[in-house]
Design a protein around this nucleic acid. Sequence first.
DNA 1: CGGCGAAACTTGTCAATGACAAGATTTGGC
DNA 2: GCCAAATCTTGTCATTGACAAGTTTCGCCG
Lengths: 190, 190
Amino acid sequence: MTDTARAYHHGDLRRAILDAALEVLAEDGPGALSLRELARRAGVSHAAPAHHFRDKAGLLTAVAVDGYRLLAEALAEAPDMRERGVAYVRFALAYPAHFGVMFRPDLYHADAPELIAAREESGRLLHGGLAAMPATRTGDDPVAAATAAWSLAHGFATLWQSGGLRNLAGDTDPLTAFRAAATLLFPARP
Amino acid sequence: MTDTARAYHHGDLRRAILDAALEVLAEDGPGALSLRELARRAGVSHAAPAHHFRDKAGLLTAVAVDGYRLLAEALAEAPDMRERGVAYVRFALAYPAHFGVMFRPDLYHADAPELIAAREESGRLLHGGLAAMPATRTGDDPVAAATAAWSLAHGFATLWQSGGLRNLAGDTDPLTAFRAAATLLFPARP
DNA sequence: CGGCGAAACTTGTCAATGACAAGATTTGGC
DNA sequence: GCCAAATCTTGTCATTGACAAGTTTCGCCG
């Protein structure tokens, strides 16, 4: 019952397949993902992946779960609202494969308990300090502020990945560009 | 061939396939799209779609082009920055199939001239009045302001579609929720 | 230490799909 | 009325995801 994966035939097939999947995802998106191709890369038979992840959707579920956990980690250290946004964007840039899957529930098993738990955990960290937010620029509507903050970070990350923002930003560092935009909503602390 | 239904020519197969595709896209996303299924729905042979749109990617290119044109239309009427954002979100909600394809260049032929033209046109309308923007809340960095505005609208639309924001917003009308968030960035005109 | 049960992986198969090739039919221009 | 091009069809192939059933390897219990 030890949950450290043992070396059977392959070593750690689950990890190997996940890693290969992340590579493909980051490069060519979810549409290019093929279980058989991943099996080929790992040097195993075409049905081997199905034993670790039931489905293609099951594989992507695992990716999404990992993503939400990594996001939670990234958010945990952010001191204030603006830096939380920065952490969000940094996560999206550092883990494009995960990020590209997490918000596409049609790709995975959105009802998997692991998935739901991981998502809720990261959700708590995301708009967690919602009440403890300084009212400097938030007006009297904290929900609107949280919506704005999340939308801003998510939109920036998404647009940056699809390449849309690069025209606007020139060759500016993405995190710098985001900080500039986020400051309009949440000015640097006094 | 003595069918009362017209034998060879469908009338407007291109439109029929596009419409069927939009239906599938809005319901189950791009992953569920099958050229053969669309052909079946239109009552034509499995290879007929390929004549109007070379590829699956070609079909999605057409969807993206239509999307950028519709977006341009939607943006054209917006008076100020905030209403432009509202128009952006309204477009995304009204045309989820188009919106879900437009920003996924891996799905279509991103180098198609029609596509590039349509995208640039809508881009002009999007951050077009960038210079003519009142400096009320924009600081002295109009690029940051445009980035923030687009990110906010895009993020809101994306998150709303994937279902993430509904927890935060409760049963608020999406456009109302967005207006509230956008007002934090671009307050109602003085 | 021996065997047994389960886990990890294999081979085999099936229907669906996208892409392509080559042919049939219709339409429109001249 | 005729011919070329546009439209659609039939046929085929490799790839893929999913499933079924077998085989090897491991862990563990007695």
